[in-house]
Design a protein around this nucleic acid. Sequence first.
DNA 1: TCAATATTTAGATTAGTTCTAATTCAACTC
DNA 2: GAGTTGAATTAGAACTAATCTAAATATTGA
Lengths: 144, 144
Amino acid sequence: MGYTLGLKRSCLTSEEIERRLADAGVHATAQRIAIARYVLCEADHPTADQVKSWADKNFPKMSMATVYNTLKILVAAGLLKKIAFPHLNEAVYDDNITAHYHLIDEKTGRMSDLDPADFKVTANLKGVRIKEIEIFIKGRRELS
Amino acid sequence: MGYTLGLKRSCLTSEEIERRLADAGVHATAQRIAIARYVLCEADHPTADQVKSWADKNFPKMSMATVYNTLKILVAAGLLKKIAFPHLNEAVYDDNITAHYHLIDEKTGRMSDLDPADFKVTANLKGVRIKEIEIFIKGRRELS
DNA sequence: TCAATATTTAGATTAGTTCTAATTCAACTC
DNA sequence: GAGTTGAATTAGAACTAATCTAAATATTGA
């Protein structure tokens, strides 16, 4: 329930973004609000470069350092996940912060989320304390 | 059977390495034999840098380009797997070319193999053609 | 208002990896 | 065997993602 694959939730206003930042203990500056709004509402698994490109069109004079700093702050605040997928050479950022897995389309390289409810994983590992399981699937979504 | 976690198989001779290269359709040069022997027999999930360091001590005048080229050739030939683990910034190379999963020690960052026989993964994904599943577990091996 | 602190900026820096052009090496032919 | 051809190797430059730095700017609180 509540897991809307591929569907982007309706966009939040700047005020709502500001409140989410404040709730997460992040001081809301203009740059941070703009980036947060883009990555949380508009973008789909963007790279830092894509965030910068968007900013170049929609925000005056934003530096790459601010993009990276802000993304790092959002990740630390728990509003965003940084994902370094094997076989990709750039990190992508995921606004879905619930536990979930990832599919990478082997043709397009595009990443999408997979609902963990669709998986059953049982591990029989003696002597290993598991903290986190990440599953990456390479393949294709069939268009049907 | 035959899955020896953490145990390094006994080292192959240069002649045996040469034969494995030839069988894989790789022209066996001195540099390639040296690197292949190191990564297939001696090293454990080495990075390109570690291969280079080893070469600096054990082979005259080997360039970084040759290290990268050779690793790429060995990967293409199916003798080695390149692994770009999330949260690591260097790729590591794995001589275990059978399907398996990976544990990354959250303290040391050290990677080790996990036997897929110890896992049961069932995915119920409609409309997704799965080509490859990668599982990364973050945690710790308990010393017992 | 003024000082103190935090944020942003441009550009330099780093690290990993790939590329390039010249050189060296190996394998064939004669 | 000597010469030719193509492949492999080399040093170093170039590239890319990401981080760092120091100066400038904005924000906050007294």
